[in-house]
């Protein structure tokens, strides 16, 4: 927060729609994605192969599903750091259910149900009791994963029914996996929800000025509650896909994903302060992150070193616009 009044740069006309399109964050990100794609195909002879690329999508589809809902939440000015813990708890619940012989439809219902339940709990705490979401979700994050640890300890659940494997390992058509198709469908659903409905406009209004939004008759608490529920729901769906793909559940499942999901959202051009961002940006960011980690994986870079790149990516992408703005500022002044 800068309290010192700054000299403002106000352009006297809007750019043409073409310059705005090419100057947009999404265009820049798309260029980065293309560059990484080219670099990957030059760096590794195994990269350009339809099945290989299809495998690469598993790196980001589950995270991206949660990232869509997280994007809405961050645009509204809140955040949910408990998503990875919700995935762990939902996965644990499904594992416990599988041990007593519940079939695939039941398992999916339990996974999604637990996700929604956790989302509702966050929603009640943040929207109902009006508590700050960062601290609340840090608390629920330890609570949800803590319950998974109480249930599982150092053990693991396995033995899922064979038909359950479809969600994480099945293919709808040729190289297009069930997860990738679900990711594509959800991206369209969320794009419509955010960019073409009243609900979406209200999310932006709350993120830009909650005070004004309240006075214009927007039920701020109800929308925030819905967004937390939605985030829980998406975490539940991601838990189904991830559990099905791995075929086993440990309490440490999806550890640290909250960071990667927030990174994906912010990388996609969503303002961490709320009020701005698009689903398109998040989709491209998902591809960028998936391509980076997959490319590094092909080059035998260990996972923890990859996380340095993700962290750097997060900081650089947030810093770059600020630095450029300051630079322009100085030039125009």
């Amino acid at each position: 927060m800068s309290a010192i009044p700054e000299k403002r740069f106000i352009p006297d006309r809007l750019g043409t729609s073409a310059t705005r399109l090419f100057g947009s964050w999404e265009a820049l990100l798309f260029a980065v994605a293309v560059l990484i794609f080219i670099a990957n195909s030059l760096a590794s002879p195994y990269f350009l192969n339809a099945w290989n690329l299809s495998d690469a999508t598993f790196n980001f589809t589950e995270k991206a599903m949660v990232a869509f809902a997280m994007a809405l939440l961050i645009i509204s000015g809140e955040i949910d750091l408990s998503v990875a813990a919700i995935i762990a708890l939902a996965s644990t619940a499904m594992g416990a259910a599988a041990q007593v012989g519940i079939g695939t439809p039941g398992l999916v219902a339990i996974g999604i149900g637990v996700g929604v339940g956790c989302g509702v709990a966050n929603g009640i705490l943040v929207a109902g009791l009006r508590l700050p979401s960062i601290v609340v979700t840090i608390g629920t994050m330890s609570l949800f994963r803590g319950i998974a640890y109480i249930v599982l300890g150092d053990k693991a659940y396995g033995g899922y029914p064979a038909s359950f494997a479809y969600f994480g390992q099945g293919y709808v058509f040729w190289v297009f996996s069930f997860e990738f198709v679900l990711f594509a469908v959800l991206s369209i659903v969320f794009a419509i929800l955010l960019h073409a409905t009243n609900f979406g406009r209200r999310i932006y209004a709350i993120g830009n000025n909650e005070f004004a939004a309240r006075f214009s008759g927007i039920r701020v608490e109800r929308i925030k509650f819905t967004l937390f529920l939605l985030t829980g729901l998406m975490s539940g769906i991601a838990a189904v896909c991830l559990t099905s793909r791995l075929g086993s559940t440990r309490p440490s499942i999806a550890q640290g994903w909250e960071l990667e999901i927030v990174t994906m959202v912010v990388l996609g051009g969503v303002s961490i302060l709320g009020g701005a961002g698009t689903i398109g940006g998040v989709v491209i960011a998902a591809f960028v992150m998936g391509l980076v980690t997959f490319g590094l994986g092909l080059l035998n870079v260990p996972g923890i070193v990859m996380s340095i790149f993700i962290g750097l990516l997060l900081i650089v992408t947030i810093t770059l616009p600020v630095v450029i703005r300051q630079f322009r500022h100085r030039k125009s002044a």
């Binding site: 960062i134 990174t263 912010v266 996380s307 962290g311 750097l312 997060l314 900081i315």
Partner: peptide, 13 residues
């Protein structure tokens, strides 16, 4: 929160 989320992974990496 964004800065330290980033440096959290970088420092441990």
């Amino acid at each position: 929160i964004v800065v330290t989320l980033g440096t959290l992974t970088i420092y441990r990496g």
